[in-house]
Computed example of a mutant assay.
Amino acid sequence: MYCSLYLNREDVSAKGFFLSSGAASLPQLSKVLAGGEDAYFVICQNWLGVADGASSWSLEETRDGLYAHELLRNCQKIVSESKSLLVTNPVEIICRSAAESQSHGLSTILVAYFDNQAEQVLHVANIGDSGFILLRNGTVFQISSPMFHDFNLPVQIKRDDDPSEFLEVYHVHLDEGDVLITATDGLFDNLYEQEIASIVSKSLQENMQPQEIAELLARKAQVVGSSASARSPFADAAQAAGYTGYRGGKLDDVTVIVSLVQKKSV
């Protein structure tokens, strides 16, 4: 599992708003030793990303998730090295990362940048069924739409693809106190939107930190994913697609980033 949680001293002292983030990534048990298929990064208090990888046929034997991990390593590197050049477009970051990636495999990817000065707008570029939920005043304010070819076949990219042919872009105004949940499909397949909102609201009332909330959401999603009888969004989608006998959750890696929109001190 590739991950990064990096803060820059200059960002902490600057005026404006910032994302106070915590993350959790839980591979399913059969994939722990291989590092899991999910990857994430959070840097500079206004950049974050998640990716969910899979293997693909090639002449080389590949590990599930290898391509996803490389994509996000490249994203972090590009953002970190380009900070002085004011790179603020997640579409550009994804395209540059894909152009530099050499691993075989398939991956969904979401990268977001929070313009935390005058606009206070979250710019999101997404491919596939990773996504985000924005909570405002304890309720679901906005949610991304997953991208599928067919049931359980998300849109993904591979080496040498042009991501701009697949990307969906969002521009979302954020207010102080908003809560942004960014995650791979392991969360959204197993917990309903209102469940997520309820868990986050109760956790904040108990003064839990973003890291703790992310861990709680990931654990709950894995419990449902391991169940053969629990209600889940994935089971609902399976039945709607004609798999009338399907019950329970979807066993999968789960990666969650919880971000609180807060005002910086002068």
Rank of each mutant, 00 (worst) to 15 (best):
S4C: 10
S56F: 02
Y67I: 05
A197M: 03
G245F: 00
S227I: 07
Q142K: 15
C75I: 03
L180M: 01
G16S: 11
K83T: 13
H171A: 11
Q142P: 11
S164E: 03
G128M: 01
H171K: 05
V261L: 12
G248P: 02
T182V: 03
V223W: 07
L48R: 10
V224S: 08
K250S: 11
Q205G: 11
I127Q: 06
L251P: 04
I109A: 12
S58P: 00
T182H: 02
A228F: 12
N152Q: 03
R63Q: 13
L86I: 09
E37C: 08
R231C: 14
G131W: 03
P210H: 03
G49C: 09
A24L: 08
V224P: 06
N207H: 13
S55A: 12
S145K: 15
Q117A: 13
Q239G: 11
L72Y: 06
S232E: 05
N190W: 02
Y246Q: 01
S203V: 14
G65R: 02
A230H: 15
Y192G: 05
G138A: 08
A183M: 01
V111N: 04
A125P: 00
V32E: 09
D162G: 07
G138D: 08
A99K: 04
Y67E: 10
Q194G: 12
A228R: 11
V42L: 13
L216G: 06
F18V: 13
G65M: 01
A228D: 14
I43G: 07
L59N: 13
F114Y: 14
G186E: 00
A23D: 01
G249N: 01
D253Y: 06
N126H: 01
V32P: 06
V155C: 09
V169H: 04
V140M: 15
S232H: 10
Y170R: 04
Y246W: 10
R247Q: 15
N207V: 14
V121I: 13
V111W: 09
S201G: 06
T139I: 14
G35L: 10
H149S: 14
D161W: 06
G186C: 00
A125K: 01
Q76P: 10
E10M: 15
V266K: 06
